[in-house]
Simulated scan of single mutants.
Amino acid sequence: MDEFSRISYWTSNQQDEKLLKRNAVKVAIGDDAAIVAGAVSEDGSSKDFELLYTVDTMVEDIHFTSTTMTYAQIGYKALASNLSDIAAMGGVPLHALIAISVPGHVSAQQAKQLYDGIYECANTFGVAIVGGDTTSSPHNLVVTITVVGQVEAGTAILRSGAKFRDMLVITGVAGKSAAGLHLLMHPELEQEISPELSAQLKRAHQLPKPHLAQARLLRESGVCHSLNDVSDGLASEAGEIALASKVDVIIEETKLPISDSLSRYAALSHCSALDWMLYGGEDYILIGTIASQHYKELKRSFQQLGMQLYEIGYVEAGTGEVWLEGSSWQSQHGQSPKTQRKRIERKGYNHFT
């Protein structure tokens, strides 16, 4: 197939016209550029919005490999990571542009599966695919996705808003994606765990869910001062908030939520669940700070919608450091809480180290 036949094969009839209309798409794939009308709020009322733009690139053998993920899962995750960036601002994703560079070892059918995964994610979260670009690649498959979203003017949640005495919260359990990747890379361990446990951990890595609904609830609450998505690990994301806000962030080890599946697999594989939580990444949950007096009320609002909100620490005056406070190194009695800390390196996934 030539380029245009392939594009049609990958993208035709993938999205409902109602979804495109709801996202104000006038002209989608098929012309030199997409045309989108001015966006309005979901209830049709007139409000001022600010646009959000984000772009992510995934490269074969760096971000993914076909030995641990199907092409459909690669496509799904490529878009999910972008949607998580929109969530981290408290926004709503609207439109996406897809650019892929396809090497000779990826067939047209495999590329179609990649697009099927992208469209599955897009349709799940109400995002209109409006265009993109396709090229050949000499070696690796490269997927670049640009997402445009919106947020009510003046209400985007930034990393730089954390305040002294804020509470540090997360919207899910960290570390499960890293554990899932470990399992995928050590298939010999699969025979030692149940199929249910295996499926849970693999799903966490291969099909992560961006926390868009959680982000909107945090924005609407008016008490969330800073927000970040957990793409590179809790330590790295907390560090970005600390640096941007010019404060210190303290993570309380004993308050970190841990799932039964993560705990059991860590024990079986002789790995540290805490390391997976702090440094693993690709969970796409949210980490942020809120006014502490509103925590109980906000947690109830989350629970009423079937979502979770966990307190995991707090904010102090400081210079941009992240500290882990807990019981792992308490070898002496009578220590004050501040001596039960260690500074956490702001490490996580980094392309250039």
Rank of each mutant, 00 (worst) to 15 (best):
M1W: 09
Q14N: 05
L19F: 03
K21L: 05
K21S: 09
R22F: 01
V25L: 01
D32W: 11
D32K: 13
A33S: 15
V36Q: 08
G38A: 10
G38C: 04
A39Y: 13
A39L: 09
L52Q: 04
Y53R: 09
V55R: 13
T57Q: 11
H63D: 14
S66M: 06
S66P: 04
S66A: 11
T70P: 00
Y71M: 11
A72T: 09
A78V: 02
A78K: 02
N82K: 01
L83W: 00
S84V: 05
D85N: 12
M89Q: 07
I98W: 03
I100E: 09
S101R: 15
P103Y: 14
H105E: 06
A108M: 13
Q110I: 10
I118S: 04
I129G: 11
I129A: 10
G132Q: 14
D133S: 15
T134I: 14
T135K: 15
V147Q: 01
G149M: 00
A156D: 11
L158D: 14
L158A: 09
R159V: 01
S160R: 11
F164Q: 15
D166T: 03
I170Y: 08
T171H: 04
L181C: 01
P187N: 12
E188H: 06
L189E: 02
S194N: 10
P195V: 09
P195M: 04
P195Q: 11
E196H: 05
L197A: 08
L197C: 03
Q206L: 02
H211Y: 00
L217G: 00
L217R: 06
G222R: 03
G222P: 06
V223P: 01
L227P: 01
N228P: 00
D229I: 02
D229P: 03
G233W: 05
L234Y: 08
A235Y: 08
A235Q: 07
A238F: 08
G239T: 02
E240S: 12
A244I: 04
K246R: 13
K246V: 11
V249G: 06
I250A: 08
I250E: 07
I258L: 15
S259H: 00
S259T: 12
D260V: 12
S261F: 06
S261T: 06
L262T: 08
A266I: 11
A266E: 11
L268R: 15
H270I: 08
A273K: 15
A273P: 15
L274M: 14
L278F: 10
G280R: 10
G280A: 12
E282Y: 01
Y284E: 06
Y284D: 00
G288Q: 11
I290L: 05
A291H: 10
A291E: 13
Y295K: 08
L298E: 02
Q308P: 04
L309T: 00
L309W: 02
E311G: 10
A317P: 11
T319D: 11
G320Q: 03
W323N: 07
L324C: 12
E325V: 01
E325Y: 06
S327N: 14
S331A: 00
G334W: 00
S336Y: 05
P337S: 07
R341L: 07
R343P: 04
R346T: 15
G348N: 06
N350M: 09
T353Y: 07
